[in-house]
Nucleic acid binder design. Structure first.
Lengths: 158, 158
DNA sequence: TTGCTAGGTCTGTCAGCCAGACCTAGCATG
DNA sequence: CATGCTAGGTCTGGCTGACAGACCTAGCAA
């Protein structure tokens, strides 16, 4: 095993680190899972994620502050005005992360009952999955088929 | 907005929750990022992730216990026997999650310098990315094109 | 005016994170 | 042999955040 090139580069502008700084907490993923399933109200989120109310409140505020969710007012008949949480475009872009987590969990971390949710293509009904592909059109089956190289934003260590 | 069907189902066998229970901690992602880049030794991991040594030690132990990493002994000339951390097949399967995080971070959470790392196909050299596709061969551009439905493992609430 | 409900906030406790110091093989050097 | 060096950890004490459970607060209805 040769010394990996990455050791000669700085790690503090890494996009994974930046992403994890925004969404890298346990409850945040569960909240996003629910929001992508159409659950948008505080009590529903609380019941389904089992997050302590205070933590949920804090995470939602942070997701709004970081521009992943927005608060939208609504009013049901005979109720006072409330608001619900919806995904912004920036939040919608998180979907591949969630799907990747879901597929991994289905394969490695749940029982034999099969997936609790299946994703289908809105337009044709076929099953949806996530995968690596190269711009020449090849589908990649494993991380071993990927070669990471330094990109334009890479910074060498002084 | 109709009431989402997911509210009638139980959320405690969710694969996202299961996955997050195993890898859902902040430092865990950073450790995995490094291991996928070929960084395998304790001190290198510590320096690059900036994780406190104790936390790193704990996370590595947990990743080994959960079967995502394995300890492999090695010996360098004039050094004592040590061991390094390598991905198991179960760990290698996490790659899509990491790539999805990376792409999101590149798009939404880092500066204009461009990506610090680019992924290329080992066999043809073309750029690699991750995306949703359906089994009929359509590439999906957004979460809005996906319709989630209850699967075989779904359990209704009593 | 009393009650009900969604969507929170407050309080005290307790687990886990953290920086920094310390420890421990095993090899090499004098 | 003693001494130092290094990788890979462990130990300590302070502090932050998580947690359960109680409480609060519009606004609507009866």
């Amino acid at each position: 095993m040769p010394r990996p090139w990455v050791l000669d580069y700085n790690s503090d502008n890494c996009p994974v680190g930046a992403a994890v700084g925004i969404i890298g907490e346990k409850w945040t993923f569960l909240v996003l899972r629910e929001v992508f399933s159409g659950v948008r109200r505080f009590d529903d989120l609380q019941r389904r994620t089992q997050a302590p109310r205070q933590v949920l409140s804090d995470r939602l505020a942070r997701l709004v502050r970081d521009g992943l969710l927005r608060k939208v007012p609504y009013q049901e008949h005979g109720q006072r005005r409330r608001h619900e949480y919806r995904l912004t475009p920036k939040g919608l872009d998180l979907y591949p992360i969630l799907v990747a987590l879901m597929e991994w969990g289905d394969k490695h971390a749940t029982g034999p009952a099969g997936p609790a949710t299946v994703l289908t293509h809105r337009d044709c009904g076929a099953r949806v999955g996530i995968g690596l592909t190269c711009s020449a059109g090849h589908a990649l089956g494993s991380a071993r088929e990927v070669t990471p190289l330094p990109g334009p934003g890479a910074r060498k260590i002084a």
